[in-house]
Amino acid sequence: MEIRIENLSYIYGQGTAYEKKALDNISLTIHGGEFIGIIGHTGSGKSTLIQHLNGLNKATSGAIYVDGKNICEEGYSMRDLRFQVGLVFQYPEYQIFETTVLKDVCFGPKNQGLYSEDAEKQAREAMRMVGLDESYEQKSPFDLSGGQKRRVAIAGILAMKPKMLVLDEPTAGLDPKGRDEILGVLRDLHRKQEITVVLVSHSMDDVADYADRIIVLDKGKILYDDVPEKVFTHVKELEEVGLAAPQVTYIMKALRQEGWDVKDTVTTLPEARDQILKELGAGAAFAGRSQDGLTGGKADD
């Protein structure tokens, strides 16, 4: 599926003392099969923007086309759209309400109008995708750990079989292990199920490692919309809007300043390792290993 946004603006609390322009003339296209990272400082409009993708926010002006149809028009079925574009909110575990994990994951598919058995089948599939086995099915979601709860919540969205998955800071508040697990799940979904993924984050390292296109938002406007290598060449501009390049980019820049002949547009760890090893003259010996183990963003897409 393809979502095309044209000149989208959104104003919060229009006509009150709290009026605030959250999005200012945004235009972009999300193609099927992409893995997009949206980054921006707190209050840059990231969350507001993604809630337009499934029609939870109604544009103040501008238009949004999903597969060519304008969703702002009368008669467009928002509910169908919501099943196609799965939106995982920030701290999604706070939306869990059922007595067992399976029941909670079933909530979405049941709203789609599926019978219990089909809903449960889809729910089980979704639970497998996020790495939750049968033993979790009858547990109370409130007894699980934070990372597990979050997986339950993400499974709740996946169970609706969306074509596009949009996640708002899915790694916020998780430890490094939980973070890697969630992002690993997303990468698998993107590669194996060919789901379009839109990942909102303010962690440069997450976005640089996983996304193949990065959109930088600042004060409701698009600052950059490009591949990670290009976006992170603007280190100074990014820092000015309260962001930063991935840590590894800084290291490579410093190495280059010290006189090493490495590219300073590197954004992922494996790439950096290859560069450094090549420079050290040991590149050939290790190049083979990078293919199967620690592969970078798009190396084997």
Binding site: Q51, L56, R82, G86, L87, F89, Y94, F107, Q112, M160
Partner: peptide
């Protein structure tokens, strides 16, 4: 508001 939106994203009505 947030929870309503989150549940609406799951098709709640």
């Amino acid at each position: 508001d947030k929870i309503m939106r989150a549940q609406e994203a799951r098709g709640a009505d």
